[in-house]
Simulated scan of single mutants.
Amino acid sequence: MPMAAEEIKTLIRAGIPDAAVEITDLAGDGDHYAARVVAESFRGLPRVKQHQRVYEALGGRMGGVLHALQLTTAIPD
C-alpha cells in the first residue's frame, strides 16, 4: 500500500523538528515522490549526512512502503 504525502511529511517533521518539508507526488500514484527538506539543523553537515537524517526519520520505509523518493535537502537562506 502506498504512503500518503502527508504521512511522509509527518514522519520527517517528527524526526527533524526544525524542518520545512515540501512533498510532491511525481507520478500521481502515491509511490513516487519528491521531497524538499530545509532545516537549520543541517548546517555544517555534508549532503550525504543530511540525506541520512531524512532516511532515518522515515524509519526504514524507503524501498518498502515508500518506493521512490527524489530528495533535496538544504539549509535556510
Results as ranks from 00 to 15, higher is better:
Ile23Val: 14
Val48Tyr: 12
Asp31Cys: 05
Arg43Met: 15
Thr24Gly: 06
His51Val: 06
Val65Ala: 08
His67Glu: 15
Glu56His: 07
Ala57Ser: 06
Ala14Gln: 07
Pro46Ile: 12
Arg13Leu: 08
Val38Ser: 09
Gly30Asn: 05
Tyr33Ala: 04
Met3Gly: 02
Leu69Arg: 02
Ile75Lys: 06
Val54His: 00
Glu40Arg: 06
Leu58Gln: 02
Ile75Thr: 12
Gly44Arg: 13
Arg36Gln: 10
Gly63Met: 07
Arg43Ala: 15
Tyr55Thr: 00
Leu69Tyr: 03
Glu6Pro: 12
Val54Trp: 01
Val48Trp: 13
Ala19Asp: 04
Ala14Arg: 12
Val48Asn: 14
Gly59His: 05
Asp18Glu: 02
Ile12Gly: 03
Ala20Met: 13
Ala57Cys: 09
Ala68Asn: 14
Leu11Tyr: 03
Glu40Trp: 06
Val37Thr: 03
His32Ser: 13
Ala4Thr: 14
Glu6Cys: 07
Leu26Cys: 14
Ile12Gln: 04
Ala68Phe: 15
Pro46His: 13
Glu6Trp: 06
Gln50Glu: 13
Met1His: 13
Leu58Tyr: 01
Glu7Ala: 11
Gly63Asn: 13
Val38Phe: 00
Ser41Arg: 10
Thr10Trp: 07
Arg36Thr: 14
Gly30Ser: 01
Pro46Gln: 13
Ala27Tyr: 09
His32Ala: 11
Gly44Lys: 12
Gln70Arg: 15
Ile8Met: 00
Ala57Glu: 00
Phe42Leu: 10
Asp31Pro: 03
Gly63Gln: 13
Ala14Pro: 10
Gly60Glu: 10
Arg36Cys: 02
Tyr55Cys: 01
Lys49Val: 12
Gln70Ala: 05
Gln50Tyr: 05
Tyr33Thr: 07
Leu58Ser: 03
Leu11Pro: 09
Val48Gly: 15
Gly60Val: 03
Met62Pro: 12
Val21Ala: 09
Asp31Gly: 02
Leu71Ile: 02
Glu6Tyr: 08
Asp25Thr: 01
Ile8Trp: 01
Pro76Trp: 03
Ile23Ser: 02
Arg43Glu: 15
Met3Thr: 04
Gly30Tyr: 04
Ala35Thr: 07
Gly60Tyr: 00
Ala74Lys: 07
Gln70Lys: 08
Asp29Met: 04
Ala5Thr: 08
His51Tyr: 02
Tyr33His: 05
Ala4Tyr: 14
Arg36Pro: 03
Gly59Pro: 07
Met1Arg: 11
Lys49Asn: 11
Arg13His: 04
Leu26Arg: 12
Ile23Asn: 10
Leu45Phe: 11
Leu11Cys: 09
Glu7Tyr: 02
Leu26Glu: 10
Leu71Gln: 01
Asp31Ser: 10
Glu22Ser: 14
Glu56Ser: 05
Val65Leu: 08
Ala68Glu: 13
Ile23Thr: 09
Val37Ser: 01
Ala27Asn: 03
Ala19Trp: 00
Gly63Ala: 15
Tyr33Ser: 06
Ile12Trp: 03
Gly44Ile: 14
Ala39Ile: 11
Arg36Leu: 11
Val65Arg: 00
Asp29Tyr: 03
Met62His: 08
Ala20Arg: 05
Leu71Pro: 00
Gly28Glu: 01
Glu6Asp: 11
Gly59Met: 08
Thr10Ser: 06
Gly64Trp: 09
Val65Ser: 01
Gln52Lys: 15
Gly28Asp: 06
Ile8Asp: 00
Gly60Arg: 01
His32Gly: 12
Glu56Tyr: 01
Pro76Asn: 05
Met62Asn: 03
Gln50Asn: 10
Phe42Met: 05
Ala74Leu: 10
Ala35Gly: 11
Ile75Met: 09
Pro2Thr: 04
Ile23Glu: 02
Phe42Glu: 07
